[in-house]
């Protein structure tokens, strides 16, 4: 292997770790942020409510279109956490997000066939300017899920990094307390 190739390999691997560190830091520092920017919070609220509406309606393809190419959806088991050191429910890149949407359409994907009916309540949206442009938002989330005649209610919060004029999702972190205490089939979580 040439030195140039070796260096490219090293930097690609370092980029993975850097992205993981970035995710862990974003989650860990969320509680230390100052009061939010009210105008930016109103902008973020519109984007988050739209996302919740798409997910509850099962419009997953449209939802998938709202992510950047370097997107990460991360669902840790608790917070704080690090995606390179702690087990997570999931950490999806754009490729696995696309597979997840395919999976949701597969009539033999028994974990979601019949699909969960969900109602998301997004509240307490706070947003701040993001260092690289765009915004970072934290919001409370309550999801009621109905499936096979039973219901479960999961509470937590979500962190979004939204970028560009159309506020595409580059990062989403979903923290759901029940993942660390006992949850029934969480495959509806997105």
């Amino acid at each position: 292997m040439t030195k140039a190739l070796e260096s490219a390999v090293d930097s690609a691997s370092a980029a993975v770790l850097a992205r993981y560190d970035e995710l862990a830091a974003l989650l860990a520092t969320m509680g230390d942020r100052p009061r939010c920017d009210p105008d930016l919070s109103a902008v973020a609220t519109a984007a988050l409510l739209h996302e919740a509406r798409l997910l509850d309606a099962g419009r997953f393809e449209e939802w998938l279109g709202g992510w950047t190419d370097d997107a990460v959806l991360w669902v840790p088991l608790s917070a704080p956490a690090h995606p390179g050191r702690d087990q997570s429910l999931l950490l999806d890149d754009r490729r696995r997000l696309a597979e997840r949407v395919e999976w949701r359409r597969d009539p033999a994907a028994w974990g979601q066939q019949p699909p969960s009916l969900t109602a998301r309540v997004v509240g307490g949206v706070e947003a701040w300017p993001a260092p690289g442009g765009g915004l970072v938002a934290r919001s409370s989330l309550l999801i009621e899920e109905h499936r096979h005649g039973r219901r479960q209610q999961l509470a937590g919060y979500q962190v979004h990094e939204l970028v560009g004029d159309d506020l595409r999702r580059r990062t989403k972190i979903l923290v759901v307390a029940a993942l660390g205490t006992g949850v029934r089939n969480p495959s509806f979580l997105l």
Binding site: R85, D86, Q87, L89, R150, V183
Partner: peptide, 11 residues
């Protein structure tokens, strides 16, 4: 084992 487990329940 790493850290804490994921806890999944079924009826």
């Amino acid at each position: 084992p790493m850290g804490s487990p994921q806890l999944l329940e079924f009826a």
